[in-house]
Amino acid sequence: MTEQTSSAGSRRRSGPWSLLAGHPIGIIGAAVMIVVVAAAILAPLLGTSDPIALNPVNRLKHPSELFWLGTDMYGRDVWSRVVYGARVSLTVGVSAAALSVVFGLLIGMVAGYVRWLDGIVMRVMDGLMAIPGILLAIALVSLSGASIVTVIIAITIPEIPRVVRLVRSVVLSVREEPYVEAAISVATPVTKILRKHILPNTIPPLIVQATYVCASAMLTESFLSFLGAGTPPEVPSWGNMMAEGRLFFPLAPWIVLFPGVALALTILAVNVLGDALRDKLDPKLARRI
């Protein structure tokens, strides 16, 4: 525990890579993520064909030299769909993480700093947290119509309260610090106090939280797609592939298994990366969880 505290203290002077030094599992997680991101960006160059091109002649083909991961019930190439599916999962995961951090930060700073608003804001957040996130997302998507943007919004809303709670707890503890009291006593404007003294303290735990939101968002996207309330069926997302392939599972398990493995591996990598960053950036949290 002591070595983690000291490395957290010296992190400002070192590059982002040193965050993972001495954390082999974290490095593996980061490496897997780099591969997934590279695959998403370079998808057209990786021996893929059109992921949504139907080819009825080649229905339900076993994995082979021609079709590396086989074909699905419409003759679409599973390898191409898995690679392009990374784009969907990453878009959803990263957008949901970024959006929930931005909104959670704003609401959390207000709740933590403006005392009379605190009670109201936190009761609203308690209420939002009580609603099962997947059900809330399902209801939002089923009413607003399926598109990637709707899915991202629907996944982000249930994630915001957790970020708000985190930011608020940091603000509450930091505002009692002598340097903040000193700043208040010399009539520093509130916005400057928030920006210069409080915001920097929220960043390390937020980075950690963002990785967990990203993993959770990718998981929720796959759940929504699996239930038919996610990204539109023509989008090659991993959840959609498994949802469509499940009827053919005994006959052609590769349609379900390969996107399943890709999804699980990606989420695993993000979670492991998050754990590694947490150990370095937020040793207090590392003790608790």
């Binding site: 599972f249 399943g260 989420i267 979670n271």
Partner: peptide, 17 residues
């Protein structure tokens, strides 16, 4: 960490298989 990362339906299908 595995338990957090493997979606319940993926695990479900593996178990059924």
């Amino acid at each position: 960490v595995l338990g957090f990362s493997v979606p319940v339906f993926v695990l479900g299908y593996f178990l059924v298989y």
